[in-house]
């Protein structure tokens, strides 16, 4: 029983990372209705910017805020420059653009900051909180930050005019345009916000996995899985999904004999596919009714 609780706690700790990423994924999905494969690399790039600012002697939180700002501008620009001309292109073309962005950011980061692994400081310290080092101060801080971001987002989408406009633009672009919402700007805002949230995720994750150009690959996978599990239309669901993926992964590794430890990731993914087969819109997702 004790191992069980330890594994669950450990799962929640790593799940916090996935929840961060899942949240960023859902954000951009709400704004543009696409899964952005380059999301992880964008977050990695933002984290490198933060690292560079810290190297230049900025205090931690100043660098944090500045990175968020730069990422926002970057995300906004990418939407305007790269995706705007392809507004009406088929989904698959967008997918290729995302893959291209992925390659570009990965290679640029390696070119500018090279591929050596770099440590990244944590604002919360590394002391063990409880459970014999299973959840450290940083993990707890990270989960807290995720929850704060989730709350801020909820408030933004629920209570501000811009949030409402963004939701409208994503849900029904044509009607939104008719009532005077600038749909294009909303999509760009969505990209900017997603880039900032990605930056938060990256900065929170970097102290755990260390900073290098490929640090986000597996995390993005888990993030996607969490987001889809929770339902792509629900930010809260995404956070829950992220934690769930962390816990499932840990438990599968511990309790499934022979192949469990080797196949942690595929088992977690398979479980998610099973959930999707039963509930095709994710656990908390809205069912989309389609008119024929």
């Amino acid at each position: 029983m004790e191992t069980f609780f330890q594994q669950v706690l450990g799962g929640i700790a790593t799940g916090g990372i996935y929840a961060c990423m899942a949240l960023a994924v859902v954000m951009i999905y709400q704004a543009i209705h696409h899964l952005n494969l380059a999301q992880g690399e964008m977050a990695m790039f933002s984290t490198f910017i933060a690292w560079q600012l810290l190297q230049w002697g900025f205090p931690y939180w100043a660098a944090f805020v500045l990175t968020l700002g730069i990422s926002f501008a970057g995300g906004f620009l990418i939407e305007r420059v790269v995706l705007k001309p392809l507004e009406n292109a088929p989904v698959l073309s967008h997918l290729v653009i995302f893959i291209a962005l992925y390659a570009i950011f990965n290679s640029l980061a390696g070119f500018i900051w090279d591929f050596t692994v770099k440590p990244f400081p944590s604002p919360f310290g590394t002391a063990a909180l409880f459970g014999e080092g299973l959840i450290g101060a940083h993990q707890a801080g990270m989960i807290l930050v995720t929850l704060i971001v989730l709350f801020l987002l909820f408030a933004f989408f629920r209570y501000t005019r811009v949030g409402l406009a963004m939701r409208a633009a994503a849900a029904n672009p044509e009607s939104a345009r008719l009532v005077g919402i600038r749909v294009g700007t909303m999509a760009a805002l969505g990209w900017g916000m997603a880039a900032s949230i990605g930056a938060v995720a990256g900065i929170m994750i970097a102290p755990v996995v260390f900073l290098e150009p490929n640090m986000m690959l597996s995390i993005l996978l888990y993030g996607f899985a969490g987001a889809v599990l929770g339902g792509l239309t629900s930010p809260g669901g995404a956070v829950f999904g992220g934690f769930a993926v962390g816990v499932i992964e840990n438990l599968a590794g511990t309790y499934i004999p022979v192949v469990g430890a080797e196949l942690k990731l595929p088992i977690a993914l398979a479980l998610i596919v099973v959930v999707l087969v039963i509930k095709p819109n994710g656990l908390f997702g809205r069912t989309v009714v389609q008119r024929v």
Binding site: A89, I97, I99, A100, Y102, A103, L108
Partner: peptide
């Protein structure tokens, strides 16, 4: 920068 070039070629093609 081969990765970045690859990406740029993809974007240009699209």
């Amino acid at each position: 920068l081969s990765g970045a070039m690859y990406g740029l070629i993809m974007i240009l093609l699209i």
